[in-house]
C-alpha cells in the first residue's frame, strides 16, 4: 500500500508524534531544551540524521540479522551523528561550541532506534526517507516548543531579545532542570489533548 505525503505529515507531526505520543528520545529532548537556538540546531540535525539512518537501514533491510539489530541501528546513527558534528563544527563553529556534549549525545537517541525498528526495516528507501522527514520534524517540533516555553518563562527572552520588558528577568524555576520536566509534561499533555480532539471530531 502506498501512503500519501499528507499521511506521513499527519502521523509524524501529530497523531504518532515520536516525542509526544510515542515518547521516544525524551532523555535527549529534556537535556537539549535549555536554549531555543541550540534546540533549533539540534532539531535540524535530528531530522537530517534520521533521514540518513532510515534510508541506510532501509537499503540494508534483510541483511542485518535479528540478534544484531540494536547494535547495528545504534552504530549507524552514531556514524551519521559524527558527520553532523563535523559539519556543525566546520560551518557553525560558535553553535558547535555552545552545543557541547549534546550533539554527540544524540547518537544514543531512541528516536533513531525505534524508527529503524518500526519502519525502515520493513519499508523501501523512499517511504523511509519520508518517514524520517516527518518523524524528525515532529520530534524537532516538541523540542523547539519546550525550549521556547523554557526560554520565554525562564529568562523572559526569545533568541536573546527580551519580551516582557526589562523588569521581568524570568522565573528561575523554568531554567532549572526541574522546569524542563514540568514544561515537557505540559507540552506532551497538550499534544495528547489536541490529538484526542481531532479524533473526536471525525
Amino acid at each position: 500500500m502506498r501512503k500519501s505525503v499528507s499521511y506521513f505529515a499527519k502521523t509524524g507531526l501529530l497523531t504518532r508524534n515520536p516525542a509526544a505520543i510515542q515518547l521516544l528520545g525524551l532523555c535527549f529532548l529534556l537535556a537539549a531544551s535549555a536554549s531555543l537556538k541550540d534546540a533549533l540546531t539540534l532539531g535540524v540535525c535530528a531530522v537530517l540524521v534520521l533521514v540518513c539512518s532510515n534510508v541506510t537501514l532501509s537499503l540494508l533491510r534483510g541483511l542485518i540479522p535479528d540478534s544484531a539489530r540494536v547494535p547495528a541501528y545504534l552504530i549507524t546513527a552514531a556514524g551519521f551523528v559524527t558527520v553532523a558534528e563535523l559539519a556543525v563544527s566546520a560551518w557553525l563553529p560558535s553553535a558547535g561550541r555552545s552545543l557541547g556534549i549534546y550533539l554527540p549525545l544524540m547518537a544514543v537517541n531512541s528516536l533513531f532506534l525505534a524508527r529503524a525498528d518500526a519502519f525502515a526495516s520493513e519499508n523501501g528507501p523512499a517511504a523511509s526517507a519520508l518517514d524520517g522527514v516527518f518523524m524528525g520534524l515532529g520530534y524537532a517540533l516538541v523540542l523547539v516548543i519546550t525550549a521556547f516555553v523554557r526560554e520565554l518563562l525562564g529568562a523572559g527572552r526569545i533568541f536573546g531579545f527580551s519580551v516582557f520588558g526589562r523588569a521581568f528577568t524570568g522565573v528561575p524555576f523554568f531554567a532549572l532542570p526541574a522546569g524542563a520536566f514540568v514544561c515537557l509534561g505540559f507540552v506532551i499533555a497538550a499534544f495528547r489533548f489536541v490529538k484526542r480532539k481531532t479524533e473526536e471530531r471525525k
Binding site: L23, F173, L176, A178, F181, V182, G185, I188, R192, R196
Partner: peptide, 17 residues
C-alpha cells in the same frame, strides 16, 4: 491528557526541585 507520562514528568520535576 495528563495520565501516565506527562504526570510522571511533572512528578520528576518536583523530585528534581
Amino acid at each position: 491528557s495528563f495520565a501516565g507520562v506527562p504526570m510522571y514528568l511533572v512528578a520528576l520535576g518536583l523530585i528534581a526541585l
